[in-house]
Simulated scan of single mutants.
Amino acid sequence: MQRVTIKDIARLSGVSVTTVSRALNHGPEISPETRERILRICREQGYRTNLLARSLISSRTNVLGLILPDIANPFHATLSFNIETYARELGYQVMLCSGRPGDGRIEELIDFLIGQQVDGILLSSASDQARYLLRRCRDILPTVLLGSCVPEASGVRVNSVSTDNFVGGRMAAEYLHRLGHRDVAYLGLRSGSVTHTLRHAGFLAAARELGMTVTTVENTGPSSAISSGYQMARRLFAAPLSQTALFAASDAVALGAIQAADESGIAIPERLSILGFDNIEYAALPNIRLSTLSQNTPLLARAAVRLLLELIDSDSRDEYTGKLITPTLVERATCAPPPC
């Protein structure tokens, strides 16, 4: 079968090759109707843009690299979907990879993406090592960290977009206090995670101001998975339970805690309120209806893509931007006033 060329598309569309090229590159000079007609003909004829040829001409591939720590994690899956959707609206494709700091893959993945001539890299990570990994790319291509970054601690600065996790932790404590809870637990602190360290710090700061007692259960595992939440909650429930509410470091941890509570005969929320963080899709299921703090994932994804594209279009490598997205409280069925 003979390969369809851009000249073939131009002939079938009744426009010039330049017009087809502008349509494929989302040029502002092309009307939406003309662009859609050209793209429809491309689909019908099986035309595929030659990214290598485009990169040789424009020094751009219109491809972004995205590295996630765990594609199976519901939050990261939703984040990836939103990033890809928004990037595609702006004429970019996304090359998705999976790896986390500490497993030895991040450095390889960054080198791989650079070799694929991506225009920029988004790294989603809660690890305190993430900024060091991106710093090595500083003079090669633009990068954005999707995660909390505390540059004051090391002097290593990177461009970042993150939920305001400290504020989110404060919001969680204030909400549980408004419901009447005074003896609470924080489930899932991971000491190597900047994200969870900030959530915990914000929660503790507000709890102290409000006169609340906090029991912290640490997560020694590599991720905040449902299984981790289940095991941590089982440890907490093994002793006499004085706490009337539990703030989980993530929705996945909260789901594990709900399972452990059910097995232990602890009624949710009549005996124990459970509050999550992330607002993953599962949280809204009718049989769960988890109260949580939403990271506003679509907004987070758009902010990250916009920042990366701004960096791609900029000649400066000496200015850094850190954007924080305020979380939103989502009240559902797993939180209520404490038992009398």
Rank of each mutant, 00 (worst) to 15 (best):
S58T: 15
G265T: 12
Y132S: 15
N296E: 14
Y320E: 13
S223N: 13
S124W: 07
F166E: 10
A225W: 02
S314E: 12
F166L: 11
I9W: 01
L146Q: 09
G91I: 09
F237P: 02
A239C: 12
T216P: 03
N82L: 07
I280D: 00
T5Q: 07
V167S: 10
P69A: 12
G115H: 10
Q295L: 10
M95E: 05
Y86N: 10
L275W: 00
L210F: 04
Q116T: 03
A201L: 12
G322A: 14
E33I: 11
S59N: 14
I268F: 05
A257F: 07
Y230F: 13
S291K: 00
D313V: 09
A252M: 15
L300S: 02
M171I: 08
L275F: 04
A173W: 02
L299Q: 12
C340F: 10
I258Q: 00
R60P: 08
I280W: 00
R135E: 15
L308F: 09
E263C: 06
V118S: 05
S148F: 09
A301G: 02
V118K: 04
R182I: 01
T143S: 09
V63T: 13
V150Q: 14
T220F: 12
R170S: 05
P151T: 06
V194T: 15
E89W: 07
A304L: 08
E108K: 15
L145D: 04
G115P: 00
T195H: 07
G102E: 07
V194Q: 03
P327R: 07
S224P: 02
T297Y: 01
R35Y: 08
Y175K: 00
V118Y: 02
L64M: 07
S127G: 13
D313P: 06
S80P: 03
S160Y: 03
G211L: 09
R88T: 12
A87C: 11
Q231T: 08
S148M: 09
E84P: 01
L246I: 12
L109A: 11
Q116N: 13
Y320F: 15
C137N: 08
L324M: 15
F75Q: 03
L275T: 00
Q117W: 07
D262G: 11
E209K: 14
G256Q: 01
I110T: 00
M1E: 14
V94R: 06
Y47F: 15
T216V: 14
N62D: 10
D262T: 09
S273E: 04
H196L: 14
E209Y: 01
R306G: 04
N25W: 10
Y282H: 10
R332K: 12
I41E: 07
R182H: 12
T18L: 06
A303P: 03
V150D: 13
L141H: 05
G155P: 12
R199K: 14
